[in-house]
Amino acid sequence: MTLSDLIDRHESGELLDEFAKREIRRATLAAVAIPGYQVPFGSREMPVARGWGSGGLQITLAVTHDDDTVKVIDQGDDDGVNAVNLRRLVTSSTGADETTTASEATVTQSRHRIPEDGLDESSILVLQVPVPEPLRGVERDMRELARMHAEADYSRMWVSLYEDKVRNGVITQTTGYPCLVNERYVVATTPIPRWDIPRLHDAPFLTLFGAGREKRIYAIPPYTIVEPLTFEDVPFEVEDSDGARCSLCGKSESFLVSLPNSTTWLCSDTDWCARQRGSR
């Protein structure tokens, strides 16, 4: 096979064949039926490195039709190199339209963020997951992990939160905070910030989590109870940027990130930020 064959093949939209898509959709349906449960799937080779969104990409390709509109962000940024590349792959492979506006998108793929607004009952949020196993830090034996999930035996997760609090005075886990989904399974919300955790609870949109390297898909269906694991007397708190404002739009009610080595804050969600500036 020559390079041009490869390019033809690629441009004919055969990134994922119909059998593969079907298998991924089946796994996705199972994941939706059992909120929070990690469904194994036959992760395919993607033209991105594993760990760079191959899992999310496969879900997106499997659930996107040519009449869909796709948004892809890296951090909160539609224009990140990775976001642009993935978006190009998806649109060329599926024939879907692209957008940067969350409310226009029917499928939004993201690694680090949930868009600040615009997701509703017609939206699917696809999150790229590097480490799908929330208990990885406390147990490495796969069979024991399966047992712990099966029996909802999360005491060791609680112990690790206890230890964190004892050692550091606070629970230090920032991104990927463990959450109990539908009062049953603990999931890793990797790697979204705490800021986005409360927004998963009772959300109108469907969230699908894909881990390409680990070959797992899990889901939070619309209007599902999502509770961050925390002690009754240790309230869960989101990041606090201490009254800082975005130096572009001047708003303080979005998730802000600081530029390296500076005290300058910016909205993480660039599209939201742009709209704030436009409406001003």
Binding site: D153, Y154, S155, R156, W158, V159, Y162, E163, K165, V166, F231, E232, D233, V234
Partner: peptide, 26 residues
């Protein structure tokens, strides 16, 4: 016991397994 967990954390394990969710009470 879990050797790389504190004494208190080791006791927290059966407590949380039994449903204790209050840090100060644990």
């Amino acid at each position: 016991l879990k050797m790389n967990v504190t004494a208190g954390g080791n006791i927290a394990e059966p407590l949380t397994a039994a449903g204790w969710r209050n840090f100060s009470k644990i």
